[in-house]
Each structure stands twice: as C-alpha cells, then as structure tokens.
C-alpha cells in the first residue's frame, strides 16, 4: 500500500483541518452521463439524458420534484440499472472503480443509516470496505461537527445531524467526486452556510461536485454551473448567470399618473409594454435611462422607473412551466 502524503489544510473556520488521505488531485474527475434512460413499466423517469459534470466548480442539478434527479444519481452510482445509456466517471463505470469511496463520495437519502448503530460504527464499516484508515473516521466526524455524539445511536439524531453524518460518509474517502442529493435539507441556516462554503472550497481544490436540489434559490447561492432537468429530460446545461439571463426577461417598471399618454409615447418609440398587476406598466426592450429620457422629453410625470430582473426561481419556473403544464394535462404520474 502506497504511503500518500498527508496534507493538513486550513480554509478558515469552515474547513477544520480536513486531512486528505490520497494525493490532492490538481485535475478532478469528469462525470459523463450519456443517453441515460430509466423506465419503470410505461413510466419514463429519465429520458435520454446526456450531460457532463466538470471539476473545479459546484454543479447544481436542478429540477422539480419527480424530475428524475435521484434516479439519475442512483444510476451514476450503479445502484439502479439504466434502461439505456451509461455513466462514466473519468471513462470508467462506477462498479469498475477500485475502492469506489476514494473516487466518489455520495449522499443520497439522509435516513440511510441503521438507527441502532452509532455514528462512529456507521463510518467505520464504510471505511473498512474501502481500506480507509480508522483515523480518517475521527477526522470526518470532527469536520462535520459530530465528534461529541460519535458513540450515540444514529436513530436519535435530528434530521440535521443525520445529514451531517451522511456528509461525513461522503467525505470519508477524500474523493475527487462528490454527489449530493438534496444535502441542504434539514440543515439550519448556519449549517447551510457552512456546507456551501465547504463545497465551494472542495470545488476550488479541483474536485467535481454535483449537488441536487428542487429549490432554485438554493442553487443561486450554492452552484456556479447548472444542469436543469424536468420529466427526465435535459432543459439546460449552462452557468448560473447565463441561465438567468437566458430565461428571465428583465423589464422596467414604470409608475405614472398618466398611463395612457405614457403608453403612447413608449409604444411610438418601439418599446413593448404590458400592464402590471398594480396599474404600473412593464416595459421590455429598453433600459430605465432611455425610458426616463423619453418621459422627460414629453413632460410626463413619473413616480417610478425601476429595472426589475427575474429571480432565479422565476427563471426556473418559466423554463419548467411548459413541461409541468404538459404533465398536468397529460395526467401522467
């Protein structure tokens, strides 16, 4: 067995001396999902999905509940057998990785722990399967802040503590690839902040981090890249900022006591308008400066001219809206 260099690293308080047990990889691993499909009888859960997750950034895996995120993650880990297609991690199927926990760390559902077993023993047997030294178990327990309850039965843990134990298990093999399914569920705001920073640090080291969520707002703060799916199909594979830009139509909100005159002026200038719910006008295709200038040129009284940009949540809704509508009409699932 080779002796790897041990690195003691400190990334502020959030990264309490996580030691690596393998070489620090300057280049992380790539996850390639190729034409992946999963059918359960007549129901299609994942439908010809292809995307690539790259190292060095946190990739958000986003989709409404039931979109196929968890199924995809289980297929990446060879837990579920695809109906078609395959997943390669650096060109290799998961089951062909020797010591897989040293390559891929995963957190699927949080409650995947025997309630009668202590946190320490849960991590110990995991470590033993992949030849990970026992000292590492203590290290990850420290890292996730469970060192004080290591000997307590996991059945008595809160959801947040169980999530932390799941994270400890994912980090056990110091893997270059992390797959986390809804890891922020059950964490308190402090815990969410801590995990975001931790994942960002791990990505910055060159690791590949795939993080799923059904909440767009989480992704805006946690991820740099986005893979969006709905009904098992890929909707977008882009950066977070490009995603917002492409899917949100920002507009200028105009409030005036003379809406009819304002409408004439702006329409004459080629600006498209819609009526806001509160009697305001929403102007598209022109900035606030130009609208202000047009109004002042015609001596129009203006109470408000403000740029409104759609939130990530709105962008997400507008993108998945069609798909969700279709689902409701189709009466499937």
């Amino acid at each position: 067995m080779p002796v790897w260099p041990i690195h003691f690293r400190r990334h502020g308080d959030d990264f309490r001396g996580l030691t690596t047990i393998g070489p620090v990889l300057s280049v992380g691993r790539v996850i390639e999902v190729c034409e992946l499909s999963k059918r359960y009888g007549p129901t299609v859960a994942v439908d010809g999905l292809s995307f690539t997750v790259r190292p060095g950034q946190v990739t958000g895996f986003l989709g409404p509940n039931g979109a196929g995120k968890s199924t995809t993650m289980r297929m990446i880990l060879d837990l579920d057998r695809p109906s078609g297609g395959q997943v390669l991690i650096d060109g290799v199927r998961y089951r062909d990785l020797s010591e897989p926990l040293r390559h891929v760390g995963s957190l699927l559902e949080a409650k995947a722990v025997h309630g009668g077993r202590s946190a320490y023993h849960h991590l110990l047997w995991l470590a033993q399967t992949n030849g990970i030294p026992g000292a590492r178990v203590r290290k990850v327990l420290d890292l996730v802040g469970l060192e004080g309850v290591a000997r307590r039965r996991a059945g008595g843990f809160s959801l947040g503590m169980t999530q932390r134990l799941g994270l400890a298990a994912a980090l056990l093999g110091d893997p270059p690839v992390l797959l986390l399914d809804e890891p922020l569920n059950g964490l308190d705001p402090e815990g969410i902040q801590w995990l975001r920073n931790l994942l960002r640090d791990l990505a910055r080291e060159g690791r590949t981090v795939l993080l799923s969520s059904h909440l767009m707002s989480e992704m805006a703060l946690s991820a740099e890249h986005l893979v969006v799916i709905a009904r098992g199909r890929l909707l977008a594979d882009t950066t977070v900022s490009d995603f917002i830009e492409a899917n949100s139509s920002s507009y200028v909100r105009v409030v005036t006591p003379e809406p009819e005159r304002m409408r004439d002026v702006l329409t004459a200038a080629g600006i498209r308008l819609t009526d806001g719910p509160d009697g305001s006008l929403h102007a598209y295709g022109a900035g606030a400066v130009r609208i202000g200038e047009l109004a002042s040129a015609d001596d129009l009284t203006v109470h408000e001219v403000s740029t409104q940009s759609a939130s990530l949540e709105e962008a997400f809704m507008s993108l998945t809206g069609d798909v969700l509508d279709y689902r409701t009409e189709g009466g499937q699932r």
């Binding site: 880990l77 060879d78 837990l79 926990l101 559902e109 025997h114 309630g115 399967t129 298990a169």
Partner: peptide
C-alpha cells in the same frame, strides 16, 4: 433485512458495487 428496512443497502452497494 436491516439493510433494507434502514436504507443502508444503498450505502453498502455504493461502497461495494459488486
């Protein structure tokens, strides 16, 4: 059966995929 009732089976098979 405790692997299935507790959900540990997924962690087990992720650790030992064969």
């Amino acid at each position: 059966s405790s692997e299935y009732t507790s959900g540990t089976i997924r962690a087990s098979l992720a650790a030992v995929p064969w």
